[in-house]
């Protein structure tokens, strides 16, 4: 009978970890695609999420913009105009419009509603991310993954991609419809089709993704550690709500402050997100998928 010492075992596990570093993207994509396929089957998930996107992207903006451009009395327009004068100078310089109603509509469409782009994907993606790893454990399918050739890194990245895609897709589709809506309602008063703006595009492509990735890295870590999906959702709410507030503030500031600020905010967010994502890989272990790790 031979007994391998704990030190020796640790050494060989270290060697294994280095080998496990090789990642097969085909398997990663397989994990992501299967997760997405399940989501597509889950009406109880995507119907509320579609409703959330519809409210933020279509219903609320339509009501407010129509009220401003078609219904409002002069004194209300005056009050809102006064409020707009409190915006930073850089922001005021960006506001366009041939009428006062048009300037207000422009400000609302670009500076108020656009940062919602942060809220919607974060909410949708954290809902997916929170359930993804603990869900494998609860359904017993973690056993299948733990015995499969997929590495912990492939599983982690696959789950991350699967969590990112619904939120980001909702944002892209939602903002496509939003662009159409605000231009149809307010382009006449602004004087031209004005949305999307260059800064908004920078926000979408440069600022939001790292915020989303950072939040998901935390949520996936929680999902790997907690005992139930309900606990994961609660914990994800605690993590993501402050992050939504922070990212909303930063995104709004980036839009208000023209020029480099949007790039700086994005760059900092990317550094933090990459560091957090790299560290998050460690949260997925086969023992956790099986539900037998300490603390699970």
């Amino acid at each position: 009978m031979s007994i391998m010492s704990a030190a020796a075992a640790g050494e060989v596990r270290g060697r294994r970890s280095s080998r496990a570093g090789r990642m097969q993207w085909s398997r990663t994509w397989t994990v992501a695609r299967t997760e997405l396929r399940q989501l597509a089957q889950a009406r109880d998930y995507w119907i509320p999420m579609a409703a959330l996107g519809g409210i933020f992207f279509l219903v609320v903006p339509a009501i407010l913009l129509l009220t401003i451009t078609r219904v409002s009395q002069g004194d209300m327009i005056e009050k809102i105009s006064t409020t707009l004068e409190m915006l930073p100078t850089t922001a005021q310089e960006q506001i366009h419009g041939v009428t006062q109603e048009g300037r207000i509509a422009y400000a609302l469409a670009v500076f108020l509603f656009a940062p919602i782009a942060v809220v919607v994907p974060l909410t949708i993606s954290t809902a997916v991310g929170a359930a993804t790893l603990v869900g494998e454990r609860e359904r017993g399918t973690g056993e299948f993954l733990a015995h499969s050739p997929a590495t912990a890194r492939e599983i982690y990245v696959g789950k991350l991609v699967a969590s990112l895609v619904p939120g980001y897709m909702t944002t892209i589709i939602g903002f496509g419809l939003y662009s159409l809506l605000v231009n149809l309602i307010a382009a006449g008063d602004v004087g031209r089709w004005f949305f999307p703006t260059t800064q908004w595009l920078a926000l979408m492509l440069w600022v939001i993704p790292p915020f989303l990735a950072f939040t998901l890295s935390l949520v996936l870590r929680l999902s790997a550690r907690v005992k139930s999906t309900a606990a994961a959702q609660q914990a994800a709410g605690l993590v993501s709500l402050p992050l939504i507030m922070v990212s909303y503030t930063q995104s709004t500031g980036a839009l208000f402050g023209a020029g480099v600020s949007v790039w700086v905010v994005g760059a900092v967010a990317w550094v933090v997100a990459i560091a957090s994502l790299t560290r998050g890989v460690r949260s997925v272990t086969r023992a956790r998928l099986l539900g037998v790790a300490d603390g699970v």
Partner: peptide, 18 residues
Amino acid sequence: ALSPAEGSILTLGVDPRT
């Protein structure tokens, strides 16, 4: 799927832990 710290395991000729 689990990596016991003590003892030796050979599965199909190789150690599944490493």
